[in-house]
C-alpha cells in the first residue's frame, strides 16, 4: 500500500481553503501552517504564465528527515506516510535541516510538526481535510498501487511532475500540469 496525493495545478485557484481546513482539523497553532500556497509566475509581460500549487510534506519514499532523525521519532507509518512521534522527538531539528522542502516546523510545545496526510481521517476511510474541502476539487488522494484508485487514474491520463526529484527524496505528492 502506498498513499499519495496529486494536486491539479490547472484547477487550483489559490483560495487557501485547504490551508484553513488543515489548521482547523489538526489544531495547528496560530501563525503556523502544515500546508501552504505557492504561486509561480513565469515569462515576460504580457506573456505571463501562472502556476498555483497547494504544497505540503511530500511523504517522501526516501525521506531524509527519517534518515537523519536520531531517535526514530520521524518514521514511516502505514502506507508510507511520514509521521513524527511527539514523545520520541527531542527537538534536535536535524529533520528540519534535512528537508529540502522546509515542510516541517517547531511546534510551540517543542516537538516537530508537519502534515500527516490526515492519517486519523484516512484510517476511517475519509479523505484528508484539505482534499475534502477544496472547492475546485483540485486534489486527489489515494492508493498509488491500486490501478483503479482515483489518483492512479488521474496520473495515468495526465502529465505530472513532483518537486525537486533531483534531491533524491522520491516525493509522493504529485502535481498535474
Amino acid at each position: 500500500m502506498r498513499y499519495a496525493m496529486a494536486v491539479d495545478t490547472k484547477k487550483c485557484v489559490g483560495c487557501s481553503d485547504c490551508v484553513v481546513a488543515c489548521q482547523t482539523e489538526n489544531n495547528v497553532p496560530i501563525g503556523y501552517c502544515r500546508d501552504w500556497i505557492v504561486e509561480v509566475t513565469t515569462g515576460t509581460y504580457p506573456q505571463l504564465s501562472l502556476e498555483i500549487r497547494s504544497e505540503r510534506c511530500n511523504h517522501c519514499a526516501n525521506a531524509p528527515c527519517v534518515r537523519t532523525c536520531p531517535t526514530e521519532a520521524s518514521h514511516y507509518a502505514a502506507g508510507g506516510i511520514v509521521l513524527v512521534e511527539e514523545s520520541e522527538c527531542i527537538g534536535c531539528k536535524a529533520c528540519i535541516t534535512s528537508c529540502p522542502y522546509d515542510a516541517r516546523f517547531i511546534h510551540p510545545e517543542g516537538y516537530i510538526d508537519k502534515c500527516t496526510f490526515c492519517i486519523h481521517r484516512v484510517e476511517k476511510g475519509q479523505k484528508p481535510a484539505c482534499v475534502a474541502v477544496c472547492p475546485t476539487h483540485a486534489m486527489v488522494f489515494g492508493e498509488l498501487d491500486d490501478p483503479n484508485s482515483d489518483i492512479s487514474k488521474e496520473m495515468a491520463t495526465r502529465k505530472w511532475k513532483s518537486l525537486i526529484p533531483e534531491a533524491g527524496t522520491d516525493p509522493k505528492v504529485f502535481y498535474l500540469i
Binding site: 503556523y32 501552517c33 505557492v38 509561480v40 513565469t42 504544497e55 516546523f105
Partner: peptide, 9 residues
C-alpha cells in the same frame, strides 16, 4: 517569481 504563503517561525 515565486510567492509562498508559508510563514512558519
Amino acid at each position: 517569481i515565486i510567492t509562498s504563503g508559508r510563514m512558519n517561525p
